[in-house]
Simulated scan of single mutants.
Amino acid sequence: MARPVIGIQCNRFVAEGVIEAQMTGKRTIEAVAEVSGCTPLLIPGMPEAVDVADLLEVLDGVVLTGGRANVHPRHYGEELSERHGEMDDGRDGLTLPMVRTCVERGIPIFGLCRGIQEMNVAFGGTLHPEVGELPGKHRHRMPKGCKDPEIIFALREHVRLTPGGLMARMLDAEEIVTNSLHGQAIQRTGDRVVVEGLAADDTIEAISIADAPSFAVGVQWHAEYNAAADPVSRVLFERLGDAARARQKLRHAGRLAGAA
């Protein structure tokens, strides 16, 4: 049997300041292929070109990538301001309904950085455009002006996992250390959103979706960076791959039953 197929969400990108494109990072593709053991398939953030129902007929899992653009605040009842930064309306229009459909159908889904925010908004939660501005919170962004990936993605955020929670059991740990490159973060959790991990300042760093029939986890960090070597990231992408293989078997069995 062929490897399971995991869709990787792309972002709007303007190449050379002129050419409209869709893109994602190489490291996410490598993490899905090498750590999850699945075939990566890039998903354009273009709801006018992609039907979610049709797409999910051929996918065994989905990764919601990070991205410079933030989720548009209208999706959680707020007005757009300069503080919200860049927007990617096409991606919002595709991913928010896709999150709900994945959970409903038992299709594994893994949210990275912007992805955790989309998962929260999809279930009715809200976001803050710059968590570091809130009382008692610290700055979660990478060092200003830094161009060195080893520094940008350095493990510096201590995250305490919810005792007895899904991620604490999955990682067999009480605390982990992650990278931290975000401004926007979860403010109010949505329905069914379970907090799985908190930063030292109580910023939500990891979630799961209650009663999801398959893997449905979001993390505020970039787990795709160094996924093969980082023990936390490796476990998460391995579990995603395991869930995708289980989903593939169900999908294949359904096709066989339909053909009988």
Rank of each mutant, 00 (worst) to 15 (best):
V99F: 02
R255V: 00
A227F: 00
D202A: 13
K147Q: 14
V5I: 15
D172V: 10
R27W: 03
R255T: 06
I109V: 15
L161F: 02
G136T: 06
F13D: 13
V177D: 00
R160E: 13
R91A: 07
H222A: 04
S36C: 06
G136M: 05
A206W: 00
A200Y: 00
V52K: 08
L181D: 00
G90L: 09
L59H: 03
V63E: 01
D88Y: 11
L42N: 08
D172E: 14
I116C: 03
V195Y: 05
G165D: 08
R68H: 12
R247S: 12
A49H: 11
G106A: 06
M170Q: 01
T28Q: 05
V58C: 09
I186C: 10
E79I: 00
F237L: 12
G125H: 01
G132F: 09
L240W: 02
A122C: 10
S233K: 04
E79Q: 13
S180D: 10
E130W: 06
V131S: 13
L198G: 08
G145D: 11
H84G: 01
S81Q: 03
G111F: 01
P213M: 02
L166R: 12
L41K: 06
E175N: 09
G145A: 12
E196R: 04
A244R: 04
A243Q: 05
R74M: 14
H158Y: 05
G115F: 02
Q184V: 07
D242W: 05
R192H: 13
F153L: 01
K137E: 09
N226P: 00
E57T: 14
C10W: 01
R169L: 01
H128G: 01
S180H: 09
A200G: 10
V159S: 07
S81I: 00
D191Q: 14
V195N: 11
V131G: 04
E16Y: 13
V121A: 09
G124D: 08
I107K: 04
S208E: 03
E30A: 14
M142D: 08
A243L: 04
T178Y: 02
D191T: 14
F13K: 11
A200D: 15
P149M: 06
V103S: 09
T95H: 07
D88K: 06
L42P: 12
F215W: 05
D51P: 08
D201M: 10
L96C: 12
A244W: 03
V232G: 03
H140C: 10
D54F: 07
P44L: 10
G218Q: 08
G125Q: 05
Q220G: 11
S233C: 13
F237V: 12
H252C: 01
G136E: 08
D60T: 07
R160H: 15
N179W: 07
M142W: 09
L236Y: 01
